[in-house]
Structure formats: C-alpha cells, structure tokens
Write a protein that binds this DNA or RNA. Sequence first.
DNA 1: TTTCATGGTTCCATTATAGAACCTTAATTT
DNA 2: AAATTAAGGTTCTATAATGGAACCATGAAA
Lengths: 171, 171
Amino acid sequence: MRWDEIDSQVCSVARTLSLVGDRWTMLILRDCFLGVTRFSDFQKSLGITKHRLSDRLTKLVDSEILRKQIYDTNYERYEYKLTKKGVELYPVLMSLVSWGDKWAVDKDGAPLEYIHQPCGNKIKPGAVCEHCDEPVSAFTITPILGPGILKKVKRGEWVDFDNQDIYKSIQ
Amino acid sequence: MRWDEIDSQVCSVARTLSLVGDRWTMLILRDCFLGVTRFSDFQKSLGITKHRLSDRLTKLVDSEILRKQIYDTNYERYEYKLTKKGVELYPVLMSLVSWGDKWAVDKDGAPLEYIHQPCGNKIKPGAVCEHCDEPVSAFTITPILGPGILKKVKRGEWVDFDNQDIYKSIQ
DNA sequence: TTTCATGGTTCCATTATAGAACCTTAATTT
DNA sequence: AAATTAAGGTTCTATAATGGAACCATGAAA
C-alpha cells in the first residue's frame, strides 16, 4: 500500500495522518499556533525549502485546516490562518509537546511552558489543568518561554508570544 | 534543513516528530495499542512493505519506544512491545483519533469507540471522561468496535479487543 | 536605475519508498 | 526423504518525495 492510500483505512488515526502525518506539516501547524502566518516567517522558523513549504501550505488550505487570506491588496500577499478545523488540532500538538517535554528534552528542560489563562497556572500540556481541573484548549492557553529555551535564545527572537490575535478570526 | 536534522530544534514537537513523525510509525504504534506484537501481523494490518516495517521497528526499538522480546527460543522469533516511553504516546494517538472522528470520518461514523474502564462509559478520546471527570490513560481505556467499522467488517477480523495483556509487561 | 523583499516556481541530484524476488531456519505435509 | 509452508527478514530496482540552488515577477525603496 502506498502512503497516499492510507486514508482508505477505516481508522481515524490513518485518516488524520493522511492529512497531517507527513514531514513538516505538524511543524507548520506548530508555528501557526505560535502566531506565524506568512510564507517567509514559516521558512525562517522551519528551515524548510520554499518548494516544500509552498506544497504543504497548499495542501493544508485544500484540506481546510488553514485558509489563505490576502493582507495587502497592492502586492497580493497572503497570510495563512487556522480554521476551526485547524484549531482543533491543538490537542494533537499539545500531546506531542507533553511527550517531548518528558522524553526528548535535553538537560535544560522544556523549551516552552504553558499557562492556563482562566486560572493563571502552568499546565501539563494536553491534560487537565492541575489547579482548576478544567480541560485545556487552544483558546485558553498562553505559551511562555521555558528554561530549555531561555538558556539558548534571546526572548522574542522570532515569535511574539504576546500576540493574542491568533484565534480572533477562525472560520 | 533536512528532516533528520529537525531534532536539533529547541522544540518538543520537533524532537518528538523526529522519532515518531515519519510515515507509518504512528500507525505501527496504533497497532501496538490494539495488541499487535508480531512482524507478520503488523504487515497484514498495515499493508506496509516488509522492508519499511523492518526499518521502522528497528528505529522504534533503538529509540526505546518498543522493545524486542523473544517468544520462541527454537525459532528466534520476536514480539515487539511498548515500553513505558512508548505507552506514554497514548495521548498523541487519542488526540489523532479524536480529531479524525470529528473531521475525517465518512457517513458511518467513528470506527472505534472507547470505554473508560473505571466508570464504564464511552469517552471522547484524548479528553477527560465526561462521566467521572477522570483524565484518561492507556491503562484504563478499552477500544470497542464502533458504527463506522461494524458496517464494513466482521467483529474480530484481525484484532482481538479482549486482549488485556498489552500493558502487562511494560519496562 | 539598480537593488531589495516577498512569495513563489523550475530544475536537478539525492534520498525514501513500493513492490517483487529471494533467503534462512525449522516445522509440516506428501 | 523431499517438497512445501511459515516467520521474519534482506536485496534489488523503479518510482516518488525531498533538499538545495537558481530563477522569476511584482512593487517598494535607495
């Protein structure tokens, strides 16, 4: 069986992976959840080739996980933004983060930490807030720089975590 | 940047994906959580070529997500079993299932449904049990056949969901 | 007038994958 | 005893995916 036939399996894992399970796609979505919207910013952040990035963004738009929105009518320049379908991939990313924070970190610890806005406490990504027991969602979490990244990069080097507009215009 | 360099990123998503983010690996792990342990059973279930399967299993053993355990000393035949590190990928799979059940099902509905053992109710995968509010884990969930699969295959066709030994010998 | 930034596309070499054939060991069938 | 089968692979080759570099179009800025 070829990879492009796996969505024929009667399995939600297979069907989901047929959309987001190839190389780069989940990393592009990670950037989306951190507020990245523009072609060149994805490229700088990911180190992906332009060709790959163009292909992946087009596929994500085709599968309605992202949508392409013009932001400068003079230039015909586009932003790529999460749809509702895309935003709901947040638990997938958070579960990857959670596992990676435990099993794939170096000695410096987790790169990012996550604040549960309703109660203001750090959470274990992908789980229930340990302080108020509310289930977490993309809308109520703010990522902040953690020890694993603060030892290596300057704050705000490529992403502005104060950006609260990411989820404003979900469609 | 090549794909095999992404684990150099200071990002738990990237580091996790460098281990489980390529084609087939998550589907192999899906089968592990459904009780599959043997080479030929993975192959039948997945439709993957032997070469790929061999390569992926070896990598999963190298990264200590699976371990190889001899089950017949005459033949030198192995079973591949989840380690603790591997079992903890359960939330990743469940979040993929959860998204796929909503956004990538056909008209028949979800292929599998999940029973939260402590309370006996169906759960929304990856979240908190809606009935008793306990967070879910691999150890307390039993998958059962759902409407999306019952219309297409005969019960027990390739996997025996009564198998409760999957997590018995985690190391 | 030339250079720069954005957001790509084209081309080619390298790498990964699919599919088939083959291999090894021991057991089973004829 | 000889041939066949099963498990668990490896080897080979054609095709597909990817990485890296070069190129292109548009409008803005120097």
